[in-house]
Design a protein around this nucleic acid. Structure first.
Length: 506
DNA sequence: TCTTGCGGGCTAC
DNA sequence: GTAGCCCGCAAGA
């Protein structure tokens, strides 16, 4: 209510509202004595007069997603509101707010956007069109006249505010910076490692090549890794997966992009760190904690992954350690997830999902039934500053990416069928606590089997106390998954060499 | 790749 | 004539 009052007062104080003019008037007010300060969220039938030096006005910016509309008048720029993109399930974000994405302005990009999944619950996204102007989209008019820029809005937005453009830009630029700051040191480190001790060729993967080929990220971006804590996490597509870590920023202008993320323990990409499985009855039993190198989840689409990057950008490696809650359950979840980025997602996707309607989580049952607490040892992540890091592939994404991962992009609720199948298969295979721990490949770089990796990961983490079995056993397990998954995608060639990364001190 | 601005063309009122 | 909308194009980030 106070906000409305303030808004009304703001309108009343608007200089443009005090003058009597219309954007279509042949003669606009000349030499305005005052100018209005730029309004990012004009709403209602308002008129403002900006100084022509106002940069934002010059660019015809608006918090609303406005697209250009041809009004066949070269002097007046007309824009119509596109509305807001929301989750069809109207799921709630961790902070209780709802998802409100900014519709892409370009038709093509918008269509693509709508094919993506809700980053929160993986349901479909829906574009809520603006109908605030007599059933038509709210329209904004811009007109440059003299030393002023005249702005007139017609209609009252009947939808939530989408993420503002400034937020989007800030997020993207931050992500870009983050990517740069993160990968350069990584690449350097990898070179050093390669040039340095060859103590255990099987202990690390050729991260350099990976880092030098960011396009490969997409291969792993989409994961449905089966691991304790998130045994059957089913991210139908990379987009959804990417998006999961970026929930808060989607909340429109309510919170600054860089401050939105509620959980400081969420980072992505993250610096190399140690993950050791600990907990009741289990303490670092596995010499090869299976992890998914979070960098493997680096998405190429800044729209879907940014938050963690932003935080990371601001906190750097040390902050990661500093903020990590070693004892929190979420941390356990992360470790259980094995995959850092995945864990992050778990924080905000999986965990938050607990508080969201079931409809938002098609994979919900599977995800939670197989948590460590459900029978397996409770998992807890212990992060140390100098650590052994086991980065092993999480090729599950290959299930969808193997033969054209992009196909998985078009996620719809129905898309979960395949994932469900996968889950059931792997869950079944996991039945007995068979030790299917993935032993390090004798040859060094672990030849990962694509789908099987899901199984391997799960096994490793679920029964870490078990002695690492022979490779063949693991292979059998993999095969189980392979069956369940149908055709095994040649993920080995792609992910294996890239992620067999182990026992590395940082 | 996406945004933005421009303009042609169509349809409805 | 006005308004809404679709489409394509080009420039720029």
């Amino acid at each position: 209510m106070p906000a409305e009052v303030a808004q009304d007062a703001d309108r009343a104080c608007a200089y443009g509202m005090k003058l009597n003019w219309d954007i279509n008037d042949p003669q606009m007010p000349q030499e305005p004595a005052h100018f209005d300060h730029f309004r990012e969220w004009p709403d209602g039938y308002v008129r403002y007069i900006y100084n022509r030096e106002e940069k934002k006005a010059q660019r015809h910016l608006s918090g609303w997603a406005m697209r250009n509309t041809n009004n066949h008048n070269g002097h007046i720029l007309k824009k119509s509101c596109l509305g807001v993109v929301v989750c069809v399930c109207a799921c709630a974000l961790p902070d209780g707010s709802s998802l409100q994405l900014r519709p892409a302005i370009c038709d093509k990009a918008r269509l693509k956007q709508q094919k993506k999944a809700c980053p929160n619950c993986h349901s479909a996204l829906e574009l809520i069109p603006c109908r605030g102007h007599s059933g038509y989209p709210v329209t904004n008019f811009w007109r440059l006249d003299g030393n002023a820029i005249f702005f007139q809005a017609k209609g009252v937005h009947d939808h939530a505010r989408p993420e503002s453009k400034s937020e989007t830009e800030a997020r993207r630029s931050a992500l870009k910076r983050q990517m740069t700051s993160f990968y350069q040191p990584q690449k350097k480190r990898m070179r050093e490692l390669k040039a340095g001790a060859n103590q255990d060729s099987s202990e690390y993967f050729n991260s350099t090549s990976f880092l030098e080929n960011p396009e490969l990220f997409d291969v792993i971006t989409d994961t449905s890794c089966l691991i304790p804590g998130q045994p059957c996490t089913s991210f139908p597509n990379s987009d959804a997966y990417k998006a999961t870590c970026d929930l808060a920023v989607f909340q429109g202008d309510m919170v600054p992009p860089f401050q939105k993320y509620p959980n400081p323990k969420t980072y992505w990409p993250r610096p190399p760190c140690s993950y050791e499985l600990t907990g009741p009855g289990y303490t670092n039993a596995s010499p090869y904690p299976t992890l998914c190198k979070d960098s493997t989840s680096v998405p190429k689409d800044p729209d879907w992954v940014h938050l963690n990057a932003l935080q990371y950008n601001g906190n750097s490696y040390s902050s990661y350690e500093r903020n990590f809650d070693f004892t929190s359950k979420q941390c356990s979840w992360k470790s259980a997830l094995g995959k850092p980025s995945l864990g992050e997602r778990t924080d905000h996707g999986q965990l938050q999902a607990m508080a969201t309607p079931p409809c938002q989580n098609p994979e919900f049952p599977c995800r939670y039934l197989a948590t460590p607490s459900a029978g397996g040892p409770a998992l807890q992540t212990v992060i140390t500053t100098t650590t052994k890091v086991s980065y092993q592939a999480y090729p599950c994404p290959a299930l969808k990416h193997g033969d054209g991962g992009q196909e998985a992009n078009s996620l719809s609720p129905r898309s979960y069928a395949a994932d469900d199948a996968l889950m059931s298969v792997c869950a079944e295979a996991l039945g007995p606590p068979a030790a299917v721990t993935r032993a390090p490949s004798p040859a060094g770089k672990i030849p990962l089997k694509a789908p099987g990796d899901c199984w391997a990961i799960r096994s490793t983490l679920a029964f870490p106390q078990e002695a690492a079995p022979s490779r063949p056993e693991g292979a059998d397990a993999w095969d189980v998954c392979l069956y369940g998954l149908g055709s095994a995608i040649s993920y080995v060639d792609r992910a294996g060499p890239l992620f067999s990364y182990d026992s590395e001190d940082f």
